[in-house]
């Protein structure tokens, strides 16, 4: 099971649509990190709307992935976390999920664009003079 990674200019969009096994999750992590490096992505949005369970393992995979992406030099936003998943994660332990979050992909994209612009990196809008 491989998760498709969509590219929009230099932003990558990933929507996790199935309940991942641990192996799928690791595959997803390495696929994404590779793509980020390959295209020197400026931002990554990870949509987890379809995940109805995020246990401590999955939380770690998401956090690690986000940190790896940041280390490479890209911004990252997680979006679409289900209300009951959020509830469960907080009940299990504060701070299990440490990445920045947004309600949906649209918002995540706005956040990414804002941050990329703030970094002074305007490549994705194709404007060299700003």
């Amino acid at each position: 099971m491989r998760i498709p990674i969509l590219q929009l200019d230099r932003i990558l969009l990933v929507s996790i649509q199935v309940d991942l096994t641990d192996n799928d999750a690791m595959q997803f992590q390495s696929d994404l990190v590779e793509r980020v490096a390959a295209i020197e992505a400026l931002g990554v949005a990870i949509d987890i709307t379809a995940l109805d369970v995020v246990d401590s393992y999955m939380a770690r995979v998401i956090n690690d992935t986000a940190n790896m992406v940041r280390l490479l030099g890209a911004e990252v936003v997680i979006c679409g976390i289900q209300p009951f998943v959020a509830l469960t994660l907080i009940e299990m332990g504060r701070g299990l999920l440490g990445a920045d979050c947004a309600f949906n992909l649209g918002q995540a994209l706005e956040m990414l664009k804002g941050r990329i612009a703030k970094r002074g990196d305007t490549r994705f809008v194709g404007d060299e003079d700003v």
Partner: peptide, 12 residues
């Protein structure tokens, strides 16, 4: 690991 599995489960 995070060491969150057992204590977290207990709280759930």
């Amino acid at each position: 690991g995070l060491g969150a599995g057992l204590p977290g489960t207990r709280r759930l």
